[in-house]
Nucleic acid binder design. Structure first.
Lengths: 127, 127
DNA sequence: CTGTAAGTTTCCCATAACGGGAAGCTTTAG
DNA sequence: CTAAAGCTTCCCGTTATGGGAAACTTACAG
């Protein structure tokens, strides 16, 4: 199938699919005589796989890793779990960081009257 | 004062201070005869201001906006508050998104035995 | 006073993960 | 058959810096 068909089936923009091919993450099965990328079902499954993993926040590098495990029938589920767990820790760390920012900013916004006068605790804090 | 002094005082890397000068966000007061950037107290205060704002997650564009308000003694605190509030909404949206990712990933990790066998719900889910 | 180490300058390349758009070829629909 | 749509490669832009080279200036040890 041609790139737009595969892209749509995987729920990805064509540009992204082309990009994945360029960086060797998911290559098309081959090329048509005219040089068009030709995707088969295997490649399509990989595209969907990567799409979902990206949506879960895995980086391209991590996707490459997961894809390697995905294709390796010898892999242990422990290997996959380890990657996912590390990613879970990343998310938790980001959540904690965001919470701190949130609380600090909320405190500032709450302290600011937001009226027409120029005195503003937010700017005061930043100075 | 020279760039490294200002950078250290503001708690920023020298490279970053130079970058801020390049994009016209915080320019040095002038140049020494040898062409070295020369920072005065006003510029230093702005550097610190931007450093704090960046730490609160404001983008460079938003910093430029805040800096404009900061320098404008005519501004109303409402203007500042509006920017901060928008930023607060950004944070909350990001938090909600992260929570969804977290729950989904945690469910997968919890379902995965993580042993030496190859069957893995995480990969199953991604396929 | 001098040699050298440290600091500064500009300039260019790299990051992550694409998106936009141009120029040119191929396929498809009317 | 022709025009539109789709495909190709290529190049630039994004965000906010970081790394490093080559050349110059300053600062300090001896």
């Amino acid at each position: 199938m041609k790139i737009s068909t595969a892209a749509e089936a995987a729920g990805l923009p064509v540009k992204t699919v082309r990009y994945y091919a360029d960086i060797g993450l998911v290559k098309p099965q081959g090329r048509t005589q005219a040089g068009y990328r030709d995707y088969d079902d295997v490649a399509l499954r990989k595209l969907s796989f990567v799409g979902r993993a990206r949506a879960l926040g895995f980086s391209i590098v991590q996707c490459r890793e997961l894809l390697g495990l995905y294709e390796n029938t010898e892999r242990s589920s422990a290997e996959v779990r380890q990657i996912a767990q590390a990613r879970l820790e990343d998310i938790r760390a980001k959540q904690r960081e965001l919470q701190l920012l949130h609380d600090e900013l909320q405190g500032l916004v709450g302290a600011c009257k937001g009226d027409a006068r120029p005195d503003c605790p937010i700017l005061d804090y930043l100075s």
